[in-house]
Amino acid sequence: MDSFVTNLQVVPLNHYILLSVIVFCIGVIGVLIRRNAIVVFMSIELMLNAVNLLLTAFSVHHGDASGQVFVFFVMALAAAEVAVGLAIIVMIYRNTHSTDIDILNKLKW
C-alpha cells in the first residue's frame, strides 16, 4: 500500500505549472471581457483556484505541509471575499437595478 501511494504521481511539475498558468490567464481574460459583476467574481475564483493547485503541487513536491496550510488560508479568505463581494453586488443592484460594471463609472475622471 505504501509503495502504491509513493508511486502514485509521476506527472512532471512543469505540467502543473502550465495548467495553473492557463487557468489563471483564463480568469484574467474573464475579468477583462465580461461586464456582469457576478461573472467577474467567478473569474476571480478561477484565479484563486489556479494558485491553490500550484501551491498544493509544490507542497507535495517538496514534502512540506506549509503549502497546503496556505491553501487552507486562501480558501478561508476566498469565502470571506465572496460573502462581502456578493453583498456589495446586491447593494449595487438595489441602487442601479443592474450588475453591469460599466455603469459604475462615477469615479472615472
Binding site: 505504501d2 509513493t6 509521476v10 512543469n14 507535495v60 513536491h61 514534502g63
Partner: peptide, 17 residues
Amino acid sequence: YKVPVVVTKSDLGLVKN
C-alpha cells in the same frame, strides 16, 4: 522543473499531519 511530482511522504495531506 522537469522532475516528476512524487508523493514522498504519503501522510502529508492527511488531517492529522
